[in-house]
């Protein structure tokens, strides 16, 4: 993973709550065997009309939402299926951070492992962000702050290891492999050796 220290962008807002990973990428697009190119089917059935044209009612199709890398979404974003194709699709679509008052566990874990900043913010801050689409924000991983121009900054919680991995571009599989001796010792101790 490449290091991610901050994301600076205008925000786009999807007010819907409980946006599940089937909505982020419908299951019929999961027959791929690679991670690449899923941005074109991100939010596919919401984003497009029956004839394949853009759905004008989909907020991310609005002119003001173009080029936004920070998504503010309604409560409980990413619930449902564990498909990592959801963060892959969002990243390929151009989203680099998701801000929400509550984010589903597996989606958040998958996102942070791919450098997508899945950040939980407080209720009041969340409401404010939902009501102010298009504002310029800086999400700073090192400082754990969201900086609003002229409105100060707010702090967010981030699991220390996830933060470390984002900042340093740590390879988590490599980290686990460094514990090979401890894993072997555990297997011996518990009678689980091959």
């Amino acid at each position: 993973m490449n290091p991610v220290t901050q994301v600076r962008s205008r925000t786009a807002v999807l007010r819907d709550e409980n946006i599940d990973t089937d909505r982020i990428i419908p299951a019929r697009f999961l027959t791929t065997t690679t991670r690449e190119g899923l941005g074109k089917v991100c939010f596919n059935d919401w984003r497009h009309q029956a004839d394949g044209s853009d759905n004008p009612a989909f907020p991310l199709n609005a002119p003001g939402a173009q080029g936004c890398a920070i998504l503010v979404a309604g409560r409980n974003f990413g619930c449902g299926s564990s498909r990592e194709h959801a963060p892959w699709a969002l990243l390929d679509y151009g989203i680099q951070a998701v801000l929400c008052s509550e984010i589903a566990d597996i989606f958040r874990s998958n996102s942070l492992k791919n450098g997508l900043l899945a950040i939980v913010v407080g209720e009041a801050e969340h409401r404010w962000l939902l009501d102010h689409p298009g504002i310029e924000l800086t999400v700073d991983v090192r400082e754990q702050t969201i900086v609003r121009p002229g409105a100060g900054s707010v702090r967010f919680e981030l699991e220390p290891f996830a933060r470390h991995c984002l900042l340093e571009g740590v390879d988590q599989l490599g980290f686990l492999q460094q514990h090979g001796d401890a894993i072997a010792a555990y297997e011996q101790r518990m009678g689980k050796a091959a």
Partner: peptide, 11 residues
């Protein structure tokens, strides 16, 4: 997730 599937396969 799939990244973790890789972790478990390898370690």
């Amino acid at each position: 997730g799939t990244t973790e599937v890789g972790h478990v396969l390898a370690t």
